[in-house]
């Protein structure tokens, strides 16, 4: 008996991405560059986060033509973004055969109260989180993979570092907690009791957790791996740099060999100019993408 869309199949797909780099692309040419550089998947979208930030307006699911073009161009998995709570964008992406959907705060939320009930879909989902409570709620809704939110489109790693440290320290706290403290911790985090019991017994999150939102250099990618990320998403950091091919390759290699510092020094030489970064304090509170989702 053949079963599709099970947790094992959906979470397993993310397990196969571990140690890899998932790159944002906006057309077939960029997708081919990403694949040739060793990306484990590409994220098809209409504008990279830094352009969304610059242009403003409502950011939506990409034109399906772009996503299809990318799907035809590469043999690696293709992910695509749907707005938070946008049931129809998600169903459309699923119908198109996209391999993974990112219910993403990079796009303008369609629903400010409810996320998608992701367990109802055959296609797996990745969602952003800043702490263990958000992680628990997204997994509870059926997300099969997590990523830090960071602050997308900034080229500034500080928020991704904050979020990954926060999630991991909360996981560690739960792992070392006495069983009789879990219920109160569940209430405090807004997580289910069963979820915390699972984290405690596994000693880690039950799904893969990537870093995202601010990775701009090979050293940034390696830093996130050092801090315990399972892999890295790079949004604007590649195709907003001076030489995307070089950055893409160097970031892939630094992610694999994240503790080989001599190598990372070599990889970082002569890459050209990285994407221009933004100081987080210069972004108005209402424009911080990480505040989207709950």
């Amino acid at each position: 008996m053949n079963q599709q869309g099970t947790n094992r199949v959906k979470r397993g797909m993310a397990e196969m991405q571990k140690g890899g780099v998932i790159m944002d692309v906006v057309n077939a040419e960029q997708a081919r560059i990403a694949e040739a550089a060793g990306a484990t998947a590409v994220m098809a979208l209409e504008r990279v986060p830094s352009d969304i930030r610059r242009d403003g307006g409502v950011a939506r699911m990409a034109d399906p033509r772009i996503t299809e073009e990318v799907m035809k161009a590469v043999s690696i998995p293709v992910m695509a973004k749907a707005r938070i709570g946008h049931i129809v964008e998600a169903r459309v992406l699923e119908a198109m055969g996209v391999d993974y959907i990112d219910e993403s705060e990079v796009l303008t939320p369609a629903d400010e109260e409810f996320h998608l009930l992701k367990e109802r879909y055959t296609v797996p989902f990745v969602c952003g989180c800043r702490n263990l409570g958000e992680a628990a709620r997204r997994i509870g809704e059926g997300a099969s993979m997590l990523r830090t939110k960071g602050e997308p489109g900034t080229g500034n790693i500080v928020e991704a570092v904050r979020h990954l440290r926060q999630v991991n320290s909360e996981v560690l706290k739960v792992v070392h907690m006495s069983e009789d403290e879990l219920m109160t911790e569940a209430r405090n985090l807004g997580a289910s009791y069963e979820f915390l019991r699972e984290v405690k017994s596994l000693g880690r999150l039950p799904v893969v957790n990537f870093a995202a939102g601010g990775v701009a250099t090979p050293a940034d990618a390696a830093l996130m791996m050092e801090l315990g990320a399972d892999g890295v998403f790079v949004g604007s950091g590649i195709f907003k740099s001076e030489s995307p091919e070089k950055f893409a390759r160097a970031i892939v290699e630094a992610t694999t060999h994240y503790q080989d510092y001599q190598l990372i020094a070599e990889l970082s030489k002569n890459l050209g100019i990285a994407m221009q970064g933004i100081e987080i304090s210069k972004i108005a509170a209402g424009e911080r993408m990480q505040e989207r989702g709950w």
Partner: peptide, 29 residues
């Protein structure tokens, strides 16, 4: 990717030569 894309990925019980009972296998792309 001969079984299709991720939405076609599946689990199935396999009869494997040399194993006495079926093996639950996860196929991903």
């Amino acid at each position: 990717n001969s079984f299709g894309r991720q939405i076609d990925s599946f689990e199935a019980d396999l009869e494997i030569k040399g194993l006495d009972a079926p093996f639950n296998a996860v196929f991903i792309r």
